[in-house]
Amino acid sequence: MKVIFLKDVKGKGKKGEIKNVADGYANNFLFKQGLAIEATPANLKAL
């Protein structure tokens, strides 16, 4: 799943980066902690 990092995550990505991560990691950690959002066309356009 492509995500947009909202904050720096050690070993994974920096704020503003768009990266592919495992679905479970994105859903269970990044999204719940507010560290990233899904890289949907609408979210990409908002950058």
Rank of each mutant, 00 (worst) to 15 (best):
M1K: 11
M1G: 02
M1I: 05
M1W: 11
M1L: 01
K2A: 01
K2L: 06
K2D: 05
K2W: 05
K2G: 03
V3T: 00
V3W: 00
V3E: 01
V3D: 00
V3Y: 00
I4W: 04
I4D: 00
I4Y: 05
F5D: 02
F5M: 06
F5G: 00
L6D: 03
L6Q: 06
L6F: 07
L6P: 01
L6I: 13
K7E: 12
K7Q: 12
K7T: 12
K7F: 10
D8Y: 05
D8C: 11
D8E: 11
D8N: 12
V9R: 04
V9S: 06
V9Y: 06
V9K: 04
K10W: 12
K10L: 12
K10N: 09
K10F: 14
K10P: 04
G11R: 05
G11L: 02
G11C: 02
G11K: 03
K12Q: 13
K12P: 01
K12G: 12
K12M: 06
K12R: 13
K12Y: 15
G13A: 09
G13M: 04
G13D: 05
G13F: 13
G13K: 00
G13C: 07
G13Q: 05
K14I: 03
K14Q: 15
K14E: 08
K14G: 09
K15S: 13
K15P: 14
K15W: 06
G16V: 01
G16M: 13
G16D: 14
E17Y: 01
E17K: 02
E17C: 07
E17S: 05
E17L: 04
E17G: 03
E17V: 04
E17P: 00
I18N: 03
I18D: 04
I18F: 07
I18Q: 03
K19Y: 07
K19D: 04
K19A: 14
N20Y: 15
N20F: 15
N20M: 13
V21P: 00
V21F: 00
V21A: 07
V21E: 03
A22G: 13
A22C: 14
A22I: 15
A22H: 08
A22P: 15
A22F: 05
D23K: 13
D23W: 15
D23S: 10
D23G: 12
D23R: 11
G24Y: 08
G24D: 08
G24F: 07
G24I: 08
G24C: 08
G24P: 13
G24M: 08
Y25N: 06
Y25E: 07
Y25D: 10
Y25R: 04
A26N: 04
A26P: 01
A26H: 09
N27K: 03
N27E: 15
N27Q: 10
N27R: 15
N28A: 10
N28Y: 12
N28V: 06
N28C: 09
N28K: 10
F29N: 09
F29R: 08
F29C: 12
F29A: 10
F29E: 07
L30R: 00
L30K: 01
L30I: 02
L30T: 01
L30Q: 02
L30V: 01
L30N: 00
L30H: 01
F31K: 05
F31D: 05
F31H: 06
F31L: 13
K32N: 06
K32S: 08
K32M: 09
K32V: 10
K32P: 15
K32W: 05
K32T: 09
G34W: 05
G34K: 06
L35A: 10
L35V: 09
L35H: 04
L35F: 03
L35W: 11
L35D: 04
L35K: 06
A36R: 00
A36Y: 01
A36N: 00
A36H: 01
A36K: 01
T40C: 05
T40W: 02
T40Y: 09
T40A: 07
T40G: 07
T40E: 06
T40N: 13
P41K: 07
P41C: 10
P41W: 06
A42W: 14
A42S: 10
N43S: 10
N43V: 08
N43H: 14
N43C: 06
N43L: 05
L44D: 10
L44R: 07
L44P: 03
L44Y: 14
L44E: 14
L44V: 12
L44S: 09
L44M: 02
K45C: 10
K45D: 06
K45G: 11
A46S: 11
A46K: 03
A46M: 14
A46G: 14
A46E: 15
A46I: 14
L47T: 12
L47R: 14
L47C: 08
